[in-house]
């Protein structure tokens, strides 16, 4: 990358993007009080909420028109994912949208694509390459019987008779073991093209998860800030004390950087694909860090109360890591960011 290139730095949302953010923001705020998140535990899937989200167009908007979609961009999806993260909505939207887009690009069966666009069939993606018969944990595989996976043989769709068994987990997500030998296997693409499709889809998953983590971190922070405003000690509000306020200021700073990195990465991926493949990974690293910091700082700001299951911050704390770690160690992403840097100097 050229350090002194003349480029715009315009982070503003246009009217359509603003409408997407507000529309989904209102929807999630209205539909998903924290009680609904709790009620969906431990599986982390609310079928009724999923239907309503489908009716909002969330599962079809970012598919190509030919596949029944509206050609919405990754920027739009980032905005939706951020709003979803703000309420930690128990729906498998990120995996499903990424896998559906991959399916469309790889020439998946029209019937399945239509069912995916309509949310009737939930599809997901194995984020690690399949090696031999090694099983792996796949996000949302406990509610999906269509799993896309890539191995040296190519990109394949594994169709199972039933979704795999849910494995209880800290983030209360529909996590399940994926066995590459299970189900009916259809190869959709092979060779370098298949690998490129897979890598791009993983980057999309990380970008949208980054956006969801930004939303999660934002809400977690607000819980801590509101507590700090109202709680008093020694005759003053605890939020006026630098020992309490400065960690919160650090957190909002990390979140602001993460949010803008997701925007920038989404813009590049939409408008100049291939120009900055490091940006979705950088956004994921930054957002995972921001979410981790926000959840713990906010919980700690609330003292012992923040450590109780009754406190809503618990929902955010458990998912901050419970969502981000599904993408694997951010160290792997940092190495890729470094590799891109090395290639550019």
């Amino acid at each position: 990358m050229e350090r002194f290139e003349l480029r715009l730095q315009d982070f503003s949302l246009d009217d359509d993007q603003q409408a997407v953010r507000e529309g989904f923001g209102d929807f999630f705020t209205k539909e998903v009080p924290s009680s609904r998140v709790r009620d969906a535990e431990p599986l982390g899937f609310d079928a009724d909420l999923w239907q309503r989200l489908v009716a909002m167009g969330a599962t079809s908007m970012a598919l190509p028109e030919a596949a029944g979609g509206d050609d919405a961009t990754l920027v739009d999806l980032v905005l939706v994912a951020e709003e979803l993260g703000k309420v930690v909505a128990p729906v498998p939207l990120v995996s499903h949208v990424v896998a559906s887009r991959l399916l469309a690009r790889a020439g998946g069966a029209a019937e399945l694509l239509t069912a995916a666009a309509g949310g009737e069939r939930i599809v997901t993606l194995a984020l690690q390459p399949v090696v031999g018969s090694n099983r792996q944990l796949v996000p949302d595989a406990a509610v999906s019987r269509d799993v896309l996976a890539w191995s040296a043989d190519g990109l394949a769709l594994h169709t199972l008779a039933e979704p795999a068994a849910h494995v209880p987990n800290q983030g209360s997500t529909p996590l399940a073991w994926f066995d590459p030998a299970a189900g009916e296997r259809t190869v959709l693409a092979s060779g370098p093209e298949a690998e490129a499709l897979f890598r791009a889809a993983v980057a999309e998953w990380k970008l949208l998860t980054a956006a969801a983590l930004v939303g999660l971190a934002d809400s977690a922070l607000n819980l801590g800030v509101e507590f700090a405003k109202s709680r008093r000690t020694l005759g003053v509000s605890i939020g006026s004390l630098q020992g309490v306020a400065f960690p919160l200021a650090d957190v909002v700073t990390e979140i602001a950087g993460a949010r803008n990195l997701t925007y920038k990465a989404a813009w590049y991926a939409s408008h100049e694909p291939g120009a900055r493949p490091d940006l979705p990974l950088a956004a994921f690293v930054q957002a995972a860090h921001a979410a981790t910091e926000s959840a713990w700082v906010s919980a700690h700001t609330q003292g012992g109360l923040g450590f109780t299951v009754e406190a809503d911050i618990s929902l955010f704390f458990l998912r901050a890591k419970g969502w981000s770690v599904l993408g694997g160690d951010p160290g792997a992403d940092r190495r890729q960011v470094a590799a891109a840097l090395l290639a550019s100097v």
Binding site: E254, L261, V285, V337
Partner: peptide, 22 residues
């Protein structure tokens, strides 16, 4: 080395896009 270098690169990317006083 790459892991650590990547961390620094992410921090400069974030620095460029973190608004104003932050």
């Amino acid at each position: 080395f790459l892991d650590r270098l990547g961390r620094l690169a992410v921090s400069t990317e974030a620095s460029w896009v973190t608004p104003a006083a932050m």
